[in-house]
Design a protein around this nucleic acid. Structure first.
Lengths: 359, 359
DNA sequence: TTGTAAGCGTTATCAT
DNA sequence: ATGATAACGCTTACAA
């Protein structure tokens, strides 16, 4: 019976093992294994014979068996707070793409912003054999680090960067970015600031941003009065409501800083609905640069974080550590302040670099 | 030496195996295994003794070993075209959450809208031992189905629903949804239609939507002239450009249907920039309902797909099949038409149910 | 260059 | 209810 030309016999592909490939090719299992993993150590003749058998039988290596033997799975685990938030989605895409490029797979989980859930998910991932773990933020369940350290599983905190941060991290310096943004607004003459922050309870990034704002204000003996401060979830609707509450006080703030992109979009839409002159009477700034911010009738000043770059760097860092290379402990990712029409000089402020302010 | 209270001895947790737990507890490996997997078959005394040892040693079962023995990994694989697109992100989150609830993990990959890449990713996932695979769309690499079938790996196509579709699927009926939306606009008196579609080359959902539009128009002997048709990527900017091209023709369309949410947002923003009276002079409709569509000054009429529900249902379906239950082959997910201010009667059209049209 | 055989950490089938 | 022990499919010394 002549060799079949069908790429894989339907009846057979199901339970094909390396051993079977070896038998059909008339070699030992070791040789097949080598032909796959270290082809240069196998004679060309055998290599080809084996390749054709692999092909004909439709053999796919059994990952679990390999993992058991090598004690490596070629998989890294990531736990994000949520996946619908634009910057995490972008980071995730960058991470996934880079991992694929590096020959790794991604096991994904969500913490829903809960430290307990994050820890539980990490345990599951480790049980599932991930070679490394990517987390978001610097704040974790107290048992998490010890748990991973004990098992020598590399971890990386993403979306944070802090020189004092123990362990590896990759991301923007949230505190500094908002410090600088706030300073810029102060320089434009603003003195009454409003802030719509993301909930800071379990979100150390949001907290760092808030600290940055407060620190910059403090340097000029300024502060955010309670009536001009609000915390909220990251929806447009929430941004609208909180903005309305803050902007309709008297005296109203002349600048409102929003803790993320959607809150900023909400603030902007509500300012238009309220007929507030932006940036003439009030400046709006956000955090994170998503496409809509640049496309609204009045584009929004914001801090651009290259989230996909965060994901890609995270991938490279973790793979490097898995493979025994020792990359530097922290990467700061650029956080560029993007000035757009939503911000300008404070009404009646000093005549600084002339912009379209119409006070 | 008294029993240590430390949850796990740092020096030990690294290489703890079930065998070690068994030795320390003074039982056989089989008993430990049973204590973990079928506790009811182990005496309470032993069960407790074992539990405490597991705890003290900080043992975490080795997934690969278990997978090798059981031929199941408790992992399902998903391949999405992209992750930054809002509806996939939502589906992903729903999928992930439901899988966690069901005790499964998620292995995630991206196809970048390429059938080849999709196939390659599926191969990787299978190699990694996924118990089932979730795909997007009905159109795949010709080898993909045979590959999975041969290995008896359950597959599910998502974001599509088609009675004629072979195999399982979960999602909206794209064709029908846009058929109905178009009929609605026709009933409002529209006769000149513009369409901004997503690229249909490798996207069968986009194609189905387009077919729905064309079918509805054809029923009324209408069609989309080339000058009123454009295909593009799914960005706001692209939506703006294509809308401008289409809306500035003469005669201009009185209704423009957009293939997805971002294209629709772009169209809406551009219509405002151009000073076009919406919906007085021109109606705009989109597909997929993201928050911004309801929050813009002129909210956008669209088709609401419950993407997270698609993800959750996909999870339940696949797990059911993995566990030997046989769920029905296809679920149609609701695709509700959400009428908002961006659509109204055609200018000079029949005085249908009165709306805010100001022709 | 190739083969032999001992693991890798579980589960599952028998016995007991 | 518990214990021995043979798989599970692959990798990797070590030998030849």
């Amino acid at each position: 019976m002549p060799a079949r030309r069908a790429p894989a016999d339907p009846a057979v592909a199901a339970g094909v093992s390396l051993r079977m490939v070896a038998r059909v090719a008339g070699v030992s299992t070791a040789t097949v294994s080598r032909a796959m993993n270290t082809p240069e150590r196998v004679s060309e003749a055998l290599r080809e014979r084996i390749a054709s058998v692999v092909d004909r039988l439709g053999w796919v290596p059994h990952g679990a068996a390999r993992a058991l033997a090598t004690r490596r799975t070629g998989t890294i685990g990531a736990v994000f707070p949520t996946l619908t938030h634009g910057d995490f989605a972008r980071a995730l895409e960058g991470l996934q793409g880079e991992l694929t490029r590096l020959g790794y797979r991604l096991l994904l989980a969500c913490s829903e912003y809960s430290l307990d859930q994050e820890y539980q998910q990490v345990r599951k991932l480790v049980e599932r054999g991930v070679d490394a773990v990517l987390l978001v933020g610097a704040l974790h369940h107290p048992e998490l680090r010890p748990f991973l350290d004990r098992r020598a599983v590399p971890v990386l905190d993403s979306f944070v960067f802090d020189r004092d941060h123990p362990g590896a991290s990759v991301g923007p310096d949230n505190r500094r970015a908002l410090f600088r943004l706030t300073e810029h607004l102060i320089a434009l003459g603003h003195r009454r600031f409003g802030v719509i922050a993301q909930e800071t309870a379990t979100n150390d990034r949001a907290r760092a941003r808030l600290e940055g704002i407060r620190a910059a204000l403090a340097q000029h003996s300024l502060a955010v009065p309670p009536a001009h401060f609000a915390e909220g979830r990251w929806t447009i609707r929430e941004g609208r409501e909180l903005f309305r509450r803050i902007a309709t006080t008297d005296p109203a703030p002349t600048a409102v800083i929003c803790g993320n992109a959607w809150l900023a979009v909400g603030a902007m839409l509500e300012s238009q609905a309220l007929g507030i002159d932006v940036p003439g009477a009030l400046s709006i700034a956000g955090y994170d640069d998503i496409e809509i911010m640049a496309e609204l009738p009045i584009p929004i000043t914001t801090v651009r974080v290259l989230s996909d770059e965060v994901g890609r760097r995270a991938a490279r860092h973790l793979v490097a550590r898995i493979e025994g290379r020792a990359p530097s402990d922290a990467f700061e990712c650029e956080a560029e302040i993007v000035l757009r029409a939503s911000s300008g000089p404070a009404p009646g402020g000093p005549p600084l670099p002339p912009r379209s302010g119409q006070s």
